[in-house]
Design a protein around this nucleic acid. Sequence first.
DNA 1: TGGCTCTATTGAAACGCTTCAACGCACGCT
DNA 2: AGCGTGCGTTGAAGCGTTTCAATAGAGCCA
Lengths: 341, 341
Amino acid sequence: MAESVKDVARLAGVSVGTVSNVLNHPDKVAEATVARVQEAIEKLGFVRNDVARQLRAGNSRAIGLLILDVRNPFFTDLARGAEARAAELGHAVLLANSDESSAREADYLDLFEQQRIRGLLISPVGDITGRLHRLRDRGIRSVLVDRPSSDIAFGSVFVDDVAGGEIAVRHLLEIGRRRIAFVGGSLAIRQVSDRLTGARAAVAEHAGASLEVVETAALTVDEGAKAAHALLTRPPADRPDAVFAANDLLAIGMLQVLAGSGDVTIPDDIALVGYDDIDFASAAIVPLSSIRQPAALIGATAVELLLTRTGEAAVVGRASEPTRAVRFQPELVARASTGVR
Amino acid sequence: MAESVKDVARLAGVSVGTVSNVLNHPDKVAEATVARVQEAIEKLGFVRNDVARQLRAGNSRAIGLLILDVRNPFFTDLARGAEARAAELGHAVLLANSDESSAREADYLDLFEQQRIRGLLISPVGDITGRLHRLRDRGIRSVLVDRPSSDIAFGSVFVDDVAGGEIAVRHLLEIGRRRIAFVGGSLAIRQVSDRLTGARAAVAEHAGASLEVVETAALTVDEGAKAAHALLTRPPADRPDAVFAANDLLAIGMLQVLAGSGDVTIPDDIALVGYDDIDFASAAIVPLSSIRQPAALIGATAVELLLTRTGEAAVVGRASEPTRAVRFQPELVARASTGVR
DNA sequence: TGGCTCTATTGAAACGCTTCAACGCACGCT
DNA sequence: AGCGTGCGTTGAAGCGTTTCAATAGAGCCA
């Protein structure tokens, strides 16, 4: 029922070693023998037992990808990019979801460690360099995605969030807005605080511009709606004339409340910029200006970084040295929510 | 660097068999010995090699979950339900995404077969009973999710889509609408055609009610927007007074276009019902009435069906016989898009 | 013909674990 | 004292591969 190389060898009239060679080094086997073995494989419907292969050969074809939020389109896009590139390189991506929980994160790291995966792509909940070092001692390399690594020992692929924040706010200033609000949180999340830093830098360049910070509990649609309601309780003169939201989910939540209030017109009264440029941004009731991150490219690059020692496939850096950190630049996509048609 | 049971055994002064027993059958080992071995494990930071374990023991702890669309919240919710239940039962879910592509589906099935996973949960692209039979011959059982199995040999967990369509349209009829449009596609997708069948049944019950079918190319936001634009080109009198969309993504696309047109008020001119009740439905610009499917419960139940031979954990059916097919009933969630506050 | 090289194939060891028959030992019973 | 009982432990076999030293055979040249 579960055929083994032994069965194939018997049917083809060769030794198991030869069958293995046909599977892994066909160039080392005479053409006629290859054909005979292939035929036997076909006839028996043999499928190599990857578990045994991995035990002996020591390396797996599976790459673990541990993300923060499987429901955020940014991460699923990233995952799809990683999957595609891994498939091209003959590997497979196993997707796991920590849901921003350290406990779940730890569980999945245990699983991956036990399974002796080939490598790990992770968007960590907190600081887990200790854990990653331990994995590395076991021969499992890691690459951080969507966050720069504080530890030089690990590769990372991320987007320059400071630049992204700067671009977003500079755009708002260019269309004439001066009273900017930054909406996002928690500020403990690295990505959020970096975007705020960029926003501050842009405002500082511009005399007469001011930045107000509205911290939220999470990066969700609900939290965006809450923040918008808070804004609406103020007299119109006290409201900002532009909002930079730390991600698109927040921005969409705000959009719905503000546009639905009848009290505020977007972008005339308040212009709005989000972050991530998820598919839904362009399909929103007022198409949302956003900062695009190359999610799929981040995933694909992380896979390359993980699998190539020499880094020849990496996007940035010298060819002779492994590229340990790849930084992408974000890009403004202006739409109706900032008055661009 | 990579410790083995041998190292642990040496440090603890016992045989490897005893170490294995501590790991797998601690009740068979004297208490003092357990303690000594545990200590050695701690000291060495030993992590059992699950690959070797699996090769010898024959069964994996990993369950494959192959879904149609990782970007559809319905499926990610389903995946989370499966993950959670599997974790409770000591298993892990490996998520893979076929993207509605038969080729990708086949690739992942190959991978899972090679990896000798414990079992498979699949929302298939087309008809793959042949392939599933082959997996079963290799000892890998399958459960179909979100679709009834045409083959009695495989378990399935699904929602009664005919009933869902009926409930949706009956609701529209109850609030006084008569000219109903069904928007969805392709009709080749089983779920879509079932929902349409239910819609037809509801309309047939009601003299004076009519049903128009608008087929779309896919179940996406974009396609919904397209369908809405087509509707807007008609003179108001020729438009339906209610729309039943085959899923929430379509409904949201329509909502945006219709609400944004200024020409149509929802629900006054056109009432709208979606399907799936994704999180975003309640957060839409006009909160969307929808048919709720217990996505997480479907995932959890599928895991149980897969892992229990006796079916004692299954939700429906006799305890003595394995429950092969579990059908859930959908539920209406009425919101503002059908005039309910 | 003898010796050499090169290619194709073989057979067994090894990967790290679980399992299981066998063994030793202490204990209680007759 | 002799014997069975049962618990705790051991050591080796085996899971299905890959790898590698050893071997066989063919071809070539002197």
